[in-house]
Design a binder for these strands. Structure first.
Lengths: 196, 196
DNA sequence: ATATTACCAGACTGATCGGTATACTCAGTA
DNA sequence: TACTGAGTATACCGATCAGTCTGGTAATAT
């Protein structure tokens, strides 16, 4: 219980993941060397290789952490009492604000797939991420995961992320939001107040 | 005229750009070292630095080449006699086929922005590319470049590219195509045969 | 008390990177 | 003929990378 005097407050592993989370996401994976991750974490180099087999394993753990983060964030942004169109647009609006604040660095999974195109483990996590997004969007509009409407929302979310990352265009992100809202309204015309 | 016996058929610069075109696009920019570009081009290393200041300059030249290629391809895919919806969908269909053949390696500009996030020159070419896409789509549907309809087509094209690169999902690309066609039809209802 | 476990500090290795330097060939030209 | 310009081949440089190794510290468990 009270083992918090000299024993690390948080484990070396947790500090490494936090460090990797910042550096990989903000400066890219390839541009971030192991030494920087270690120094930034305030941890010994050996501790990295005690907890992770190699850099690739650290990258995968980072992506899994980002996936958990996305889910947490999606639920934090969601107000189940709002109409469906607003529950959807909240996701896009967060993206648009991030663009305006210059704090958007891209989708970690898209970035990783592009930075490490030959890494199967990365593709696997990216696939899981896309399935999670699809499931979440399906839940928000109360539709089947395989429905056309959900596919279209996935596409609009993909579009918004590219518009944010490459175009840095908040207005375009909001246009995607409008499209998503129109889609939800068309899919569920008798829904102007409640989502359940 | 007849100076083609020992004088290089094509210049070292052209061979380097062709080599860079293949390697950067298929394996990524950071993963492709200078030595490989040079060896693959069958050219001396000094020839690279005689024609380009550094790797970054080569990358920018490669992107400009890709931009020209995109324009050429877009015109090759376009049949001005087809209805507008088909002129649009041809773009998406080419993408879907590329996914099915496993020959799609992503948008060179998006890839470059993600691989070299701190490079201003890369961002500049990417911005030009997006303007070119917007202009082309506007011409295809005969709308103003700044119109909402064109913004929406840009978004759908962005979406299709992400669906292709990260999702590797040809069906999703075709769903984007359907959305684009519906958008064109709605924007121009009295257009079922001719585009002019 | 001792063995174990988790950690830190940092030197070190081998490979690879972008880029430079040296020395040469050869075709066209003034 | 002698110079120039574009090319080739290859050795080399300093930096950086991922990953290993040595050696030490301190708390925990036996």
């Amino acid at each position: 219980m009270h083992s918090s005097t000299i024993t690390p407050i948080v484990s070396a592993k947790a500090r490494l993941l936090a460090s990797a989370g910042h550096l990989f996401h903000e400066h890219g994976i390839n541009a971030t060397g192991i030494d920087l991750v270690v120094r930034n974490a305030g941890v010994a180099k050996a501790s990295l290789y005690n907890n992770f087999a190699n850099k690739e394993a650290l990258v995968v753990a980072y992506l899994e952490q980002e996936l958990d983060g996305w889910i947490g964030n999606a639920h934090a942004l969601d107000n189940p009492l709002s109409p469906r169109r607003e529950r959807i647009s909240a996701l896009f609006e967060a993206l648009a604000r991030s663009v305006e604040l210059n704090t958007f660095h891209g989708c970690p999974f898209t970035n990783a797939v592009i930075e490490l195109p030959e890494c199967a483990a990365v593709r696997t996590v990216a696939k899981r991420y896309r399935a999670v997004v699809r499931t979440h969007l399906a839940n928000l509009i109360g539709a089947d995961t395989t429905s056309t409407a959900v596919s279209r929302l996935v596409l609009l979310y993909d579009a918004a992320i590219t518009a944010a990352k490459v175009g840095r265009d908040a207005a375009l992100v909001r246009e995607a939001s409008t499209m998503a809202q129109e889609l939800v309204d068309a899919h569920n015309p008798d829904d102007s107040q409640q989502s359940r």
